Amino acid sequence: MVFNLIFVKTIYMKSILAVAFFLLPFAFFGQESVSFYFDNNKSELNKVELAKLNTWILANKKSKILSITGSTDEVGSSGYNDTLSQKRVDYIFNKVKVAVKIREDFKSISLGEKGAKSKNKAENRRAIIVFLQEKDLAKEAELIKPKVVEVPKTTEIIPIEEKDMNFPEGATLEEKVELSRPGTLIVLPEIQFYKNSFGIMPSSKPSIDELIYILDKNPNLRIEIQGHICCVTQDHNNLSLERAKQIRRVLVSNSIRQDRLVVKGFGVSKPKFAIPEANEEQALANRRVEIMILQK
Rank of each mutant, 00 (worst) to 15 (best):
F28C: 12
Q234A: 08
R103L: 08
N4D: 07
K47V: 15
I128N: 08
T154E: 12
Y37T: 01
N196K: 01
N40D: 15
K121A: 15
Q295C: 09
A127V: 08
I223E: 13
S108M: 14
E210Y: 05
A278Q: 15
S180Y: 07
V148M: 01
I212T: 06
K119C: 04
D39L: 04
L5V: 14
M201N: 09
A27K: 11
F26M: 12
L5E: 11
S197W: 11
D235Q: 01
G30M: 11
Y80E: 04
Y213E: 10
E175F: 04
M165C: 13
S204V: 13
R260S: 03
T55E: 02
I129S: 00
S110T: 10
R181A: 11
A244Y: 08
E32V: 06
K61E: 13
E140A: 13
I191V: 15
W56F: 15
K95I: 08
D235F: 11
P206L: 06
I293W: 02
N81M: 05
E134P: 13
C230I: 05
K121F: 09
I68F: 09
K87E: 15
T69A: 02
V2F: 11
I293S: 04
K264Y: 13
K117N: 07
F273G: 01
F167I: 04
L211S: 07
L53H: 03
Y80L: 11
E210K: 02
E74A: 09
I160F: 01
K163Y: 12
Y37F: 15
S118F: 11
A171Y: 06
I109F: 12
T10F: 01
E242A: 02
D90P: 00
E140M: 14
Y91H: 01
K245C: 06
N254H: 14
L211Q: 00
H236F: 03
H228D: 02
E113W: 03
V19M: 12
P182N: 10
R288M: 08
L294V: 13
Q86W: 12
E44P: 00
K97G: 02
F7C: 06
P219N: 01
N120A: 09
S15G: 12
M201P: 00
F93P: 03
I256Y: 00
I16Y: 04
A274V: 12
K163R: 14
V48G: 04
K270Y: 05
N218E: 05
L66A: 05
V89T: 07
V96L: 14
R126P: 10
E142K: 01
S118Y: 13
F28E: 14
Y12S: 14
